[in-house]
Design a protein around this nucleic acid. Structure first.
Length: 267
DNA sequence: AAGCTGTACAACCGCGGATAA
DNA sequence: CTTATCCGCGGTTGTACAGCT
């Protein structure tokens, strides 16, 4: 199929909101469908990536804890570049995040270690040293096949600047946090809200500029607004709730180009 | 202050597996 | 059984920012 002008590159806040909205509506499985229905000029693949790596409510941003660091090191030694697999053992971290982290931090460390000593017999990190066995001890490894980490009915979360909320003290030590296991992916139970901290690179400025925490209410306000608007204007909603199966049949015919309701809103 | 370099992270690409038709 | 489509994964690239000279 010829995709006219598929958008690439960085996601805008607006796109984020839109994607979150539709994922909450339709779930996180049918990405091509979501991509089409949402009117985003993105591929399903791109939508999925954005969701999984950035918009997903369970994501835990901010610096890796020493514990996580060790875990990554350990699991990488065990499994190699099986990032998604490793990510499953690090609740709130994505394969992409871990992969990036590894590339920038750990690989260097690992190499240093390799040179310094024979592999893994003692992973020491100044403050802590743990044998590989010990690591496995406090992080029980449970294999799960699927990594569908959420219920889209759940809480919305952090995203681009509008979603970002910064817990100033970064992450609570994961060791002490209760873990909720969902099918295949575990989250930290933060008592309702999810812990999100600033993305590292831009942290300083953004945190300064906004000690500004975006409470969930605000986010939902955004969504509600959009939803109302959609309800009123988007052709999609004329067909709801049968939309889903209808789309399956004639998605492209019926909604060749859903005009972007959010832009309309903004403009 | 300006330029350079390294780091961190977001996003894209291509491939392979799973599943539906 | 074959083919098409979708999804997920791992590798790679691009870009912004921070720190150093």
């Amino acid at each position: 199929m010829v995709q006219e002008e598929t958008r690439k590159g960085p996601w805008t806040e607006h796109e984020d909101v839109q994607l979150v909205f539709y994922v909450n509506l339709f779930g996180d499985r049918r990405w091509d469908f979501i991509a089409k229905v949402s009117g985003l000029k993105r591929t399903g693949k791109s939508c999925r990536l954005r969701w999984v790596n950035y918009l997903h409510p369970g994501l835990k941003r901010g610096k890796m804890t020493p514990h996580e660091e060790r875990l990554v090191l350990e699991l990488h030694a065990k499994w190699g570049n099986r990032w998604s697999r490793i990510a499953r053992k690090l609740p709130g971290r994505t394969d992409n995040e871990i992969k990036n982290y590894w590339r920038t931090h750990m690989r260097k460390k690992a190499q240093e270690r390799k040179q310094a000593m024979s592999p893994l017999s003692s992973i020491s990190n100044n403050s802590s040293s743990a044998s590989s066995n010990a690591l496995v001890d406090y992080m029980p490894v449970v294999e799960t096949k699927e990594r569908s980490f959420y219920d889209t009915g759940g809480v919305l979360a952090p995203s681009s600047s509008i979603f970002r909320s910064y817990s100033s003290s970064n992450n609570p030590p994961m060791d002490s946090m209760p873990v909720i296991e969902t099918k295949g992916q575990s989250f930290y139970d933060t008592g309702g809200d999810l812990e999100i901290s600033a993305p590292k690179g831009k942290k300083d400025k953004e945190v300064e500029a906004s000690e500004k925490v975006y409470p969930m209410d605000d986010i939902w306000k955004d969504i509600d607004l959009s939803e109302n608007f959609l309800t009123m204007t988007s052709p999609i909603w004329n067909y709801c709730p049968d939309l889903q199966w209808m789309m399956e049949e004639e998605e492209s015919k019926m909604f060749p180009a859903i005009s972007d309701p959010f832009f309309a809103l903004a403009g």
